[in-house]
Amino acid sequence: MSSNEGNMKNVLSNLTSNREGNRFALISFIATLILISYTGYDTVVLRTGIISEFADDNEYLITFTTQNETMQEVVTLQDDETRNLQFDLSEIIIPEGYSIGYIDVSVTSEEESGISGQCDSVAGDIIMNDLAAQWSDPGNNLSGQDSSCIPIELDLAIYPNFNGESITVSAINEYQALLNWSEEGWGDGSLSIDLDLDVNAPLGFDPLNTDSDEEITVDVYISLFAVSIQEIE
């Protein structure tokens, strides 16, 4: 049945005049509706829920669990001697999930020779080398000297921005919140320390030369940390 009057009703009637064609078209339309329904649910309902979590950055509290490892070396230096000590940090056992945060060094001299027990002058320096560390951190103390038998304290920051205190960060997920705390390689290398000794005799007088050397103890305290994260509701 055909008509060329151009009425919308006639046009649609002509267009749908083939029964087989209509059947195939109807199947396609039903398939389209089904497809739109379940993909629409996945996209508009399910995915919207997931994505809405990323609409604003979440707040996370990052806390640190710390533990210490120690290395020690005892050396005897002669008067006016300079000696370099190397502490290979790969020798310490770092538990799974831990990183090196910072290193504290204590240089202790023990005055026991000589007539008067006058303290000798001891200097300790952490020497900048290829150890992966924060060499320009303002909190570092890389040099120290003492002639009053008080231990010399030296500090070197290893992991960037680590000071052991909890922090709050904003990020879209936990992974990104922890991104700054999952870097590897910090602390790789050896810690190099130079020691100098200058023996001090009482009033500069030691005729028997009984105070010509000094036993110096170097303690290296390596602070390790592990990270814990908690979303702030």
Binding site: N18, E20, G21, F24, A25, S28, F29, T32
Partner: peptide, 18 residues
């Protein structure tokens, strides 16, 4: 437009085949 095009396609391919 999609509904119209599918109707046209299936009507005329059916006429050609049948």
């Amino acid at each position: 437009g999609y509904f119209i095009l599918l109707l046209v396609y299936f009507r005329f391919i059916s006429e050609e085949m049948l």
